[in-house]
Design a binder for these strands. Structure first.
Lengths: 174, 174
DNA sequence: TTTTGATTGTTACAATATAACATAGCTATC
DNA sequence: GATAGCTATGTTATATTGTAACAATCAAAA
């Protein structure tokens, strides 16, 4: 029964797994990391992070703004961008540069950037550590005598689920 | 003497090599590829490509607009973006997603994306085929059952030249 | 030559992001 | 607890980046 209710809700976001679990886990990790680091996980920051974790799609700053306005009439672009800046600094989210959009990071404590696989059909973004890729990049940079500060590796294409069932409507982006 | 004059001019753009050679080669390649493909390398498109090749830094669309206005009073944002779209489609330039800026592609005929190494100090961008990296990505995508359409691999950091001589002023970005 | 499609001109605007300064809220110390 | 200093948020304005839509022009093919 609870299960049934949850599934219905989930159809609005991701279709495959119990997504509320992802969000809760991410919030818990954020609380823990912020506490450890002595930085403040304020209500605004928490709310933005929760909104970002409402799906596995990357979300745009102004869409976040639209979504917090109901709760926070005072919200303005700066409100959102400041929270995003904080979350980026703490490694709790990624910016998907090729979309100008933001997504939760599942590897907040790893402290390095992941590969982002952006599905152009369902718009979900999969994050992968891609260790072999990272090793190859490290070698390449050594050859190039280049000292890395940060990287963005973003791949656009069709994810496995979309490829295997391009007829499913429940998987379409909104 | 000609050599001397050229060096003086080059100090405004790149410092190390005879950069006008890069530009000329790029334009020549563009002419050849467009001709082969039956697409039109119009004066606007050529001029934008030439401006992009004036340095090895990525340049922003509105900076391009400022630079063509002297020659083309009629130029508007759409003028620039249309030329950029064409050049991107033909693989003659890259968009550096993490900078919202554009740079020439030295591997126009290779038909695949390169690694872009963005120096945060001199702002030059080095393009590298990075074959090992690309292989590793291909393997990763196979594991993930993901079909790639395009990729952006952008690494920010300090290039070798800046690292070895952070005192040089001629290398600073403008 | 006509016609068709591609390119460019032009106006208007949408979407993304930051600057700058005022106010409020914490927290460390007296 | 008071208060001083720092962090976070409120607020206004504006900068930057990118597109839509339609008209006019140009070029290549029929």
């Amino acid at each position: 029964m609870t299960q049934q209710a949850e599934m219905t809700e989930l159809e609005h976001t991701s279709t495959i797994h119990d997504h509320s679990g992802c969000r809760e886990k991410a919030i818990h990790t954020a609380e823990k990391l912020c506490s450890q680091r002595g930085v403040r996980f304020t209500p605004i920051r928490r709310e933005i992070l929760e909104l970002i974790w409402e799906s596995h799609r990357a979300i745009k700053a102004y869409d976040l703004l639209d979504r917090i306005k109901p709760h926070m009439g005072s919200a303005k672009p700066a409100t959102v961008y400041r929270a995003l800046d904080f979350l980026l600094e703490q490694g709790l989210i990624h910016k998907v540069e090729s979309l100008n959009a933001f997504m939760g990071c599942s590897y907040s404590d790893h402290r390095h950037d992941q590969l982002l696989l952006v599905c152009v059909q369902c718009h979900e973004v999969e994050e992968r550590p891609g260790e072999r890729v990272m090793e190859a990049i490290a070698m390449e940079l050594e050859q190039a005598a280049f000292t890395m500060q940060r990287k963005a590796i973003e791949i656009h294409g069709i994810c496995g689920r979309c490829a295997s069932s391009s007829s499913s409507s429940s998987r379409a982006a909104n």
